[in-house]
Design a protein around this nucleic acid. Structure first.
Lengths: 223, 223
DNA sequence: TGATATATCTCGAGT
DNA sequence: ACTCGAGGTATATCA
């Protein structure tokens, strides 16, 4: 990894065109040839960048340098460097990578394993039940044998209710499944989403991730 | 901006939990206190980070250091540093910011100017036709004089079909306009969106930005 | 490889 | 402050 602090201007031409007027910035060149241009603020997103795979061509231009980064699609990032204040290279090796815990897929796995969280005597039909407009998170049967479609979100907003409504419309056309009712399950459900769900006869369930995980086998936990 | 190359492990606890085993990495501390953890590969997204506003507390721990970055919501990024290989600070000043060109609103302007792209004899009523639930991108009449509502997206996904459906429901209550049919126009339409649109009697149109722009470019006109 | 859903999405505009 | 929509979205998963 190479770190350069330089006075530079940047132009990107690819899926769109973008220009950065001259200023002092951090340029990162990673081992795979990718380049990031960072300012001293904003968030984690660089001002401009080129994703790998790509190649960096470096040439002198006047008192400074011209960097041209090109990828396979022909997109170009052109960095005009007027002055270099810092330039170091470091060998980092390969990163072991990130372990995450608490995302939506975990909620879905845990709830599928413990479907009776939603009601006593409920049984799982399957996770990711396929339909032409996308998979239903969980399809199951309640104690009376009626079909239930469950939509799971980390944060329950209005989009999720719309999504579940579409699935219900579709599933209810299948005589083998109909009538199908819906459950909207999330760690947190926004008031607007709850109102819309209730209005459409969809019930809401709040999921407690800690409780679901606590009931799960500790040996399968990430940490 | 401070650049540190260090052997470190990282833990994030906030909206989710994440852990990075020990490895040699780049740590960036920006002027606003935000911290980025980058490896020597991947893409522009850091392995882990804390967005501003946040505060960094630095303390010695054994032979190394313990960094604790905390934001207002109580989320924490904890970096355990075993060994520091590089540590420099640089004054960058304020960045003038990015200028973008060639984005999506052009698509609407171009299609409105060339509404016959959708069908011979079609005439524009107006762009951004106002309704109580937001403006319809384009309202026009086909060769037979029937009203058509057009929703334009760069990437046609299911949300866009939902949006157009809401407009159609509303517009069809207006006796001066009804019956109104819908056209879903995008540079690219996802299969699921196409299925839903077709199911609702909405037709789909693929827009070619280059062709639309080419037709509009005075230099390429015949007269 | 292509399609799809998620994201600690980020970022900006408008209300 | 909040919502809504777009993004050079990126990223992972699954067919």
């Amino acid at each position: 990894m190479r770190l350069v602090i330089a006075q530079c201007s940047v132009d990107y031409a690819g899926r769109l065109a973008a220009h950065l007027p001259t200023a002092r910035r951090l340029l990162i060149v990673k081992a795979d040839g990718s380049v990031l241009v960072h300012s001293d603020g904003g968030s984690y997103k660089p001002l401009n960048w080129m994703s790998p795979p790509c190649t960096l061509r470096e040439e002198e231009q006047g008192d400074g340098y011209l960097w041209t980064v090109t990828n396979k699609a022909g997109e170009q990032l052109v960095i005009t460097i007027e002055e270099v204040f810092h330039d170091t290279a470091h060998d980092l090796g390969i990163d072991p990578g990130l372990q995450k815990d608490g995302v939506e897929s975990h909620l879905q796995e845990l709830l599928a394993e413990q479907i009776e969280t939603l009601g006593k005597g409920w049984r799982l039909i399957r996770r990711e039940y396929p339909t032409p407009i996308g998979p239903v998170d969980i399809l199951c049967r309640d104690a009376e044998g009626a079909t239930v479609a469950v939509e799971i979100k980390r944060r329950g907003e209005i989009d999720g209710v719309e999504q579940l409504t579409r699935y219900l419309d579709l599933l209810n056309r299948d005589p083998l499944l109909a009538p199908v009712r819906g459950v909207f399950a999330a760690q947190e459900i926004k008031p607007q989403a709850r109102v819309l769900a209730t209005d459409r006869g969809i019930s809401c369930a709040i999921l407690d991730y800690e409780v679901l995980r606590g009931m799960d086998d500790p040996s399968t936990r990430l940490f």
